[in-house]
Amino acid sequence: MIKQLLRYLGLAVLLFALQLLVFNNINFHGYVAPYIYPMLLLVLPLSLKHWHLLIIGFACGLLMDVFMHTLGLHATAMLIVAYLRPFVTPSDTSRAYAPGMRMGFRWFLKYALLGILVHHTVLFILEAFTFNNLSITLLRIVLSTIASTLFILILEAMRVNGSER
């Protein structure tokens, strides 16, 4: 139990550091802003209650907000992902203990893509705070979702490989 907790804590620290120090500096003509830290919320164990997810999502988002000077922005996006997560994860917890690539690559791809799409849609629309230039905001959402999902798939593959060894 403690070991598990430490593992998720380690993952959280790693994802936050990667986000703040590496992925925030990636840009492609200013249109792509990948966010990989929501991966934490995606791979948390299925045994967690719905309200656990809400609190964890909110807290992680708020912590990210403090670092990025966007108080409330990431908290909102993460909270909405946390609220929606139980509607797409399997309700029968006997099959797997946490959502991940072990449940099948295609399933995880769809799951991550959906989660990140929700996160980015909320985030980029709130960030722009206007429906002017909606086409640009949409372009930013689509391109960033693709980039983030790609990075999350790579990280998840590395994580699964690492834990099997």
């Binding site: 909110f58 708020l62 966007t70 108080l71 409330g72 908290a75 909270l79 909405i80 609220y83 709130l126």
Partner: peptide, 12 residues
Amino acid sequence: FLVLLFLSLWLY
């Protein structure tokens, strides 16, 4: 969920 959503949006 609604309380936290209101809180985060209000903060933002």
